[in-house]
Design a protein around this nucleic acid. Sequence first.
DNA 1: GCGATCAGCT
DNA 2: CACAGCTGATCGC
Length: 637
Amino acid sequence: MSSFAGRMKEYPTISLDRFDKENLHARAYFLSHCHKDHMKGLKGPLLRRKLHFSRTVRLYCSFVTKELLLNNQKYAFWEEYIVPLELESPTQIPLVDEASGEKEEIVVTLLPAGHCPGSVMFLFEGSRGNVLYTGDFRLAAGDASRIEHLHSGSRVKDIQSVYLDSTFYDPRFYQIPTREVCLRGILELVGNWISQSSYHVVWLNCKAAYGYEYLFTNLGEEFNTQIHVNSLSMFKKMPEILSYVTTDRRTQIHACRHPKDDEYFQGNRLPCGCTATDGTPLRIISIKPSTMWFGERTKKTNVIIKTGASSFRACFSFHSSYSEIKDFLSYLKPVNIYPSVIPIGRTLTEVSQLLKLMCRNQSHQALIYKPLGVLKRSRVERPTYDSDTDDELFDRLDMEPVRKKMGLIQEVKKDKSQSPQRTASPLSVEEPSSVTVTQSVAHNYVDCTESNDEEEDNEEEDKSKELEESRKSGSPKWEDFFTTEMLTDSQNSIKSQSQSCCSAASTSPSRMTGSQTPELFSDEENPHNAETFSLTLSASVSNHSSQNMDSCLPDTEILRPQQGEGETSVTSRKEEGGCLMVPSEREEPSGSQASSDFDVPCTPESRAPQADELLQLYRKLASGEEVLIRKGSQGSV
DNA sequence: GCGATCAGCT
DNA sequence: CACAGCTGATCGC
């Protein structure tokens, strides 16, 4: 949870992600994303009153964040004070002291943060230097090099300070499987379950927060279905999400919630009360997205863990891992780094000390040769940090075990011609049913009328009919759901027109079930219909190429990701037996790494190594020598 | 009655 | 496998 106080040393007249106390005096406000722990004070009466009397104070955020914020009535009064900004478009913001009339300008650029829909980092450029407020973020190793506005020409911008999402800045959280790997594990588990029969359903036990949407869209796309959720209204201008969620309960994948949903699940009921028509009990499994982390040398990297007869945890993280953060920081090399989160069990002092080592002046000037890349990243000296595990805390040339191809999850996100119902179940769950799965499972489900939770939960249903009119076809990728652009009304109408063909199996829920849901979506509730816009979500930073995931299925319930992915900070590797792993033997670098290594050279004078130089280098590495290329010439300055 | 804070829970 | 947010109790205004 963020404990950032709201203000940055360099630009104390603006406030970010905190809106109480001293922040009430700010000249401008910034909201990085729509999570409550970043919105403290945002609905406070004092701030509301200030806005009422101010002519210049505004709240700046992304279009999607604005949409999500205003979906909550408690924040509706912000409507006229929000200035949504385009991503990656430097914008000059006036900072006016309304008492004295004094005015200052600052340039802000929104950078996609990969944390939840609409989440951004703020890059500020002004008279006190460049500062980066990361908000909360999940970026893969190598992503920083692809963020154009962190660069000036071919060089990394001089960043004075980074205000950092340090949630997992602790060596305990060294590695978290990449988003893609986690997604594959979940797709595999879900696919193998719901393909057994139409009575086999999945409940995604997600928390009440934005950030799971890419899961819904990818599942929806993969299995040509929609995910049942409590409400669609927040997504009404985001067709890419809207098209994969529904309030129609007759689907095999649910992410609905109820205050007593765990109880419901124990009683073999879905939170929405949905059951089968013919009395056949549903076969429900729950999948709880949870953060899983691994030490540097931990080989156990299961992304799915079975926790009960019908319960699973699936690896999932909104935040960058320790190594991902280190990669990010070692690329930017800011002068100062301030943590905005203290990891559980750590102190501010500990985290600050660890972060100091990543600052420009503390880092050693030695560059270590990277055989396959340019001399982009320098390395930090291994600090004398007190290790709490047998994991090595910091990457070293001689500590990295060879990453074996251990991926046991079949590639599922591939060409669309392949059936989602593929292979035998890898899960040691209950025996497969002989019922053949068809696309249309609608008739197997009805309302469970004894369910007492209809009143509140179904208020969106009638609206959903309307909203589902605007579904679109297309292949979603996770990275689509963290950034935005606006659609014009005409584009939106095109999308609406194109939707009818792909909703053949989707029938109005109230028509099928006789729902008594009152009409809650009158025009009055949305008086600005004529002016409504549509948000579309565009590809963001990462450009992950298809990776070689041609692994086999396990015969246990444990799924493992391919290892070695996203690893960029280690310059060379040596197998524990002493055998060098040369580049040609290494795993293919991920698409992100490949591009990050070559796109933005920070040391222009660098050149490609010759074969004999490489040989020498490997010999030195094998003998454990430190390999020093050159002093000085930091690429990041 | 409202907001802030905290414990407890998930 | 530890993030984000809900509920309810308590307190102060």
